[in-house]
Write a protein that binds this DNA or RNA. Structure first.
Lengths: 353, 353
DNA sequence: CAATTTATGGCAACCGGTTGACAAAAGCCT
DNA sequence: AGGCTTTTGTCAACCGGTTGCCATAAATTG
């Protein structure tokens, strides 16, 4: 009978109480009201409704607030209003450098506009992603989904609840921020054509990836325009390792130039080919996608179609914030430009010795 | 006189109200109480105080909660208790890959233990960092500071308020998680000695970096032990670019092996040396620190002293969570092991041709 | 100068949980 | 059966802002 007294109820008694650990309680609007000699509601108005109170009481209150170095309690504010000054960002994989810049872009604009960023990852799983998103919805004003893996319908369901912005994918009825691959791809393919390549392989990403499909479309179209052969190869996973595994298929394809779904694949592919004695770019040209961190660490440095990831993050955050504030379109798709970053891994094909 | 009516008060009327945008309000404990035929406070207890209510009412309430698919309102809970099930992570620079793994480690354990991670960056500035920390303190249960730039005193002040865990630095009286450099460094220096090197240069990081000082200490001690000369060089900034700029000093130093404060420096240094025709590792060996993402993209791949960054992040999060739950030491320093990752950028010195 | 509009501050209810105090109910004992 | 301890549920106050409504003071107008 002593058992039910679970001793770990201590777990619920955290040290964080209403006043900080050193004992001095935080100032409230009631304290300010007392000091300034006005009603708490007037304090509330002075602090959040510009122009609602007279200039002199405003000053009175502001001074009192400064003196007590008052800070609003975000929870007390969130409770009646539902506003939290917080938004969520869910990425498929924190390990994937593609998202680093997105995170950074979003974080920067969040801080800039006095919002707080809450981060979660879905570990590339659609269900984890949905769970994380649902959890977040309770505590944030809006949500950014970077390369989401879940259904369009699930996304739309979330978007019915609170503003949602999607990065790297287009979902009908939901505002999206998507790199427009065409410019970058056509530059890349033109560069390859100019260097005498006739047959181009595209190593695709995950079958469910919206972006992979767009890139393949772009490559095929650009190759057609430049009168090059285009062949599509599959990859097991969009990582360095996946790139290594794709090397066999690439060599068998007979292509002299390869575009890969992302830089990770390109790097793995290049490593494996070089290990097999293939000289890049003399015998084969390799072009990646995204221009992630480290793309220029390789030898030769990787030619790639840059997606302005950081810009995507900050544009998405801006869009979301505008949405939250009533400004901004309800559901357009914003396109950001891509461009070819010409480095050493692509170039003129040398005749076999 | 029409001016004071700032039209952008619309900015404060976000669409997020108490019920979701589609109109159906979220279930509350009052709804559950009604369905289950008990008092709201009983519902509250059933849901958060295990063992406080009888098994059958417990079930009754849980069923009702499930039926209404109830979710606690975190703000309503946070208001009286101060508990938020949230902790903050502040990193010096989101762009720096060193922190990627830390973020990931922290995020993973956070999610695992039903906490939410809030992320902020300080852009390498002590004041921004302090501001961000202060802002966060209002909304989180605890804080993790990764490689903080602010004063020890400021950190201790924060720690007096709420639990704080520091990564990559030791602060008296505050629990810290620090990679223990000794093992990794001695392995590295021994390997260099075994390969016939006599003089080792260390390219230091930022002067205010605690970790840079530790690493230099370690290098000096290990070199003494192995009877090697050790010389310390400065860098302008701990980035690839900083590494490039350090190349001149490295060559002038006459050292045949270099350890750098971090991998970024090592990569930049290697790029610059190779561009000048120096062969790595035949003419000079290069060893980095951390084993960041991309350290193996270089040619030759970078030898480096790995810090288990992901582990640091998750250990710090675990420590913090234990602290929050009353378990765990108040203020010990946890050390995690480092190890040498031998790749191609270090090796035997070849005699000059 | 009275009538009316407008600007300003106060009152009180409310957001949705949490928790100490207490009473009713149940279990245990002699 | 009566008295005593232990469970279990209820009451009501509280956390700290927000906001609709109203009353008063001030400004405007004829």
């Amino acid at each position: 009978m002593t058992e039910p007294k679970t001793p770990d109820v201590a777990a619920t008694t955290g040290p964080a109480k209403k006043h900080a650990r050193d004992g001095k309680p935080n100032a409230t609007i009631y304290d300010i009201a007392k000091v300034a000699g006005v009603n708490p509601s007037t304090v509330s108005r002075a602090l959040s409704k510009p122009g609602r109170v007279s200039a002199k009481t405003q000053k009175l209150i502001e001074d009192a607030a400064a003196e007590l170095n008052y800070q609003v309690n975000p929870f007390a504010r969130a409770l009646p209003t539902g506003r939290t000054s917080t938004f969520g960002l869910i990425v498929a994989d924190i390990t994937n450098p593609t998202f680093f810049d997105i995170i950074r872009g979003a974080e920067t604009t969040a801080t800039l506009r006095d919002y707080t960023l809450v981060l979660a990852e879905s570990a590339e799983s659609a269900v984890t992603e949905l769970t994380a998103a649902r959890r977040m919805m309770a505590t944030v004003d809006g949500l950014i989904l970077a390369s989401p893996r879940m259904d369009d319908d699930d996304i739309r369901a979330l978007a019915r609840d609170k503003p949602v912005v999607v990065i790297n994918r287009e979902v009908d009825g939901v505002p999206c921020v998507v790199p427009d691959v065409n410019k970058g791809i056509s530059e890349a393919v033109r560069s390859l054509a100019a260097n005498g390549h006739k047959k181009v392989a595209f190593v695709a990403g995950p079958p469910q990836s919206w972006m992979s499909a767009r890139r393949w479309d772009g490559v095929r179209a650009a190759c057609e325009w430049s009168r090059l052969d285009a062949v599509r190869l599959e990859s097991s996973k969009p990582t360095v390792d996946g790139g290594r595994q794709a090397a066999r298929a690439v060599r068998d394809s007979g292509a002299t130039a390869v575009l890969t779904y992302n830089d990770l694949l390109a790097i793995g592919l290049m490593q494996e080919l070089q290990a097999a004695g293939v000289v890049v770019p003399d015998q084969i040209s390799i072009v990646g996608f995204d221009d992630i961190f480290g793309a220029d660490f390789t030898t030769p440095p990787l030619t790639t179609v840059r997606s302005p990831l950081g810009e995507c993050g900050s544009v998405a955050a801006t869009l979301l914030l505008d949405l939250l504030h009533g400004t901004g379109d309800p559901a357009g798709t914003l396109r950001v430009e891509t461009e070819l970053v010409l480095r050493g891994s692509s170039g003129r094909l040398l005749p076999p010795r």
